[in-house]
Write a protein that binds this DNA or RNA. Sequence first.
DNA 1: CCATTACGCTACGACTCGTAGCGAAAGCGA
DNA 2: TCGCTTTCGCTACGAGTCGTAGCGTAATGG
Lengths: 209, 209
Amino acid sequence: MQSRTPASRTGRPRSAAADAAILAATREALVELGWSKLTLGDVATRAGVAKTTLYRRWAGKNELVVDAVAELFDELELPDRGTLAADIEGVVLRFAAILARPEAKSGLMAVVAESTRDEALRERIRASIVDRQKRLVHTGRARAQERGELPPETGPEDAARTVDLIFDIVAGAVVHRTLVSAEPADEDWVRDFTRVLLLGLSGSARPGM
Amino acid sequence: MQSRTPASRTGRPRSAAADAAILAATREALVELGWSKLTLGDVATRAGVAKTTLYRRWAGKNELVVDAVAELFDELELPDRGTLAADIEGVVLRFAAILARPEAKSGLMAVVAESTRDEALRERIRASIVDRQKRLVHTGRARAQERGELPPETGPEDAARTVDLIFDIVAGAVVHRTLVSAEPADEDWVRDFTRVLLLGLSGSARPGM
DNA sequence: CCATTACGCTACGACTCGTAGCGAAAGCGA
DNA sequence: TCGCTTTCGCTACGAGTCGTAGCGTAATGG
């Protein structure tokens, strides 16, 4: 989690149970207190470890919360539902469900905000959250191209740019809907969103597929 | 700004210059220190006012930063460029330019994160930032319908829902691109994004308008 | 059984917070 | 002009958090 491969051949090993307890306690504290009122001392108490133990493993609140929140997104998958529209609706609904949880809401945006002034933190977020989920876009796109629902690649560079664009649109819209508009990204919304994403504003006025 | 209409008929009036100085100092501190290291004491010193004066006007860091950031978005406009695509590209580029400024980046996301646990703060954000800009979507949509680029309204409720959806997509995508992906929302990106927004994924594969 | 590392605990200086209390300043109405 | 009212700058304060140091103890591996 916090990249500890080198050295440490001998001596007492770090408790893996403590890691799990700390991350769980962090999520619990995020739910009860939110980001700003969350203190590392409190997390340590909840986890049943000493504050010094926590500081030996994480540099600070930012890194700790990134790891705690990242685990929430690990469950995301992209089941094959037969059509591109159905695939999108399914994964967006799952993503929205995770993002609706208070520990994700409070934690994720706060660390993203901090990452604007901390390049290392941004890299940590990208590696442990963003890039891990971007594969879903790749998969869904490849499937749709096999089905003939999307035109084939024009080149590897264009493909990467398109995937990035789609990811920004999808993740951005869901996050904005959930956190800024503070409205649920429910089935109705996801259906409307998917229609716009696939057909565009020009072709998505009339309801009914 | 902080809604001070009632009472206060007599006595020494509050200095309007102090308000401006405080908000400017807040933005300056956001640039230099970022959200987490910004302290109200420091802002007061920069603004040349006493810390107590600052606390008399704003309840805390959250409210202060919302007001300081909100002013950045006041300059947003929607000039008529003749086509819907050009209108979108223009306003998105302006929006992206504002969001690229460090004081907007650090501040906006942080207060949004805090607003997940503070209903009053979310309302303040909505009133002073989000709703003020949502009118741009209304305007652009109405223009496009006059030009025949978009189908006419099916009803006032559907229209409101559509405007909300478009706003979540546009604002969400730009924010995600700028803050999470940490890549510039430049002309190339905005062009690609606009094409997807108007034509959808199915119809937007080939470059060239 | 011994070197090595992790752990729990306590204590610490430094810092920020938000508020209280004071005297002085600046408007407004009579 | 005078007095009422409210704001302002300043100082000081208790409370709380931060991140670290120091110490003795616990748990491994050779």
